[in-house]
């Protein structure tokens, strides 16, 4: 993993950015960023099928001394309310955090909040 400066990059990825990408492009973007040591927070998460593919692709890219995989935490899809359905809105994936597993760790996760921490020793100096 390359880290040019001492800080840790935290990138917030807007829904607009992802709307224009195909599933494959999204997954490629995410893994490329995460392998550079960046932590991403996606405003608009991945569908269950995309999540499954991301796990599969992550496993293919693991290199034992440089990339051990991802830490990913998000929620299931929002079920649309009756009114939203009426207006043609389908299920929407919710906010998701994805980062390199050797850098970020989930402390706790419940229905409403995801608590993460940067693994000590790798944080900004």
């Amino acid at each position: 993993m390359t880290k040019k400066d001492n800080g840790i990059s935290f990138n917030l990825v807007s829904r607009q950015k992802f709307q224009d990408l195909s599933s494959e492009e999204k997954l490629r973007f995410i893994l490329k960023e995460v392998k550079k040591g960046r932590i991403l927070v996606l405003e608009y998460g991945l569908t269950p099928t995309e999540q499954t593919s991301l796990i599969e692709n992550t496993m293919k890219e693991i290199e034992q001394d440089t990339f051990i995989g991802v830490e990913m935490e998000g929620y299931g899809e929002d079920t649309p309310t009756f009114l939203q359905k009426l207006f043609g809105m389908g299920k929407r994936p919710r906010m998701t955090m994805i980062g390199p597993a050797d850098l970020v760790k989930t402390v706790r996760k419940d229905d409403n909040m995801i608590q993460t921490k940067i693994i000590p020793g790798r944080g900004a100096k």
Binding site: T47, P48, Q51, T52, G74, Y75, G76
Partner: peptide, 14 residues
């Protein structure tokens, strides 16, 4: 709510 549980459930529900 671990990601693996969420992902597997979401996949099956879909």
């Amino acid at each position: 709510f671990t990601q693996v549980n969420v992902t597997i459930l979401g996949n099956l529900e879909a």
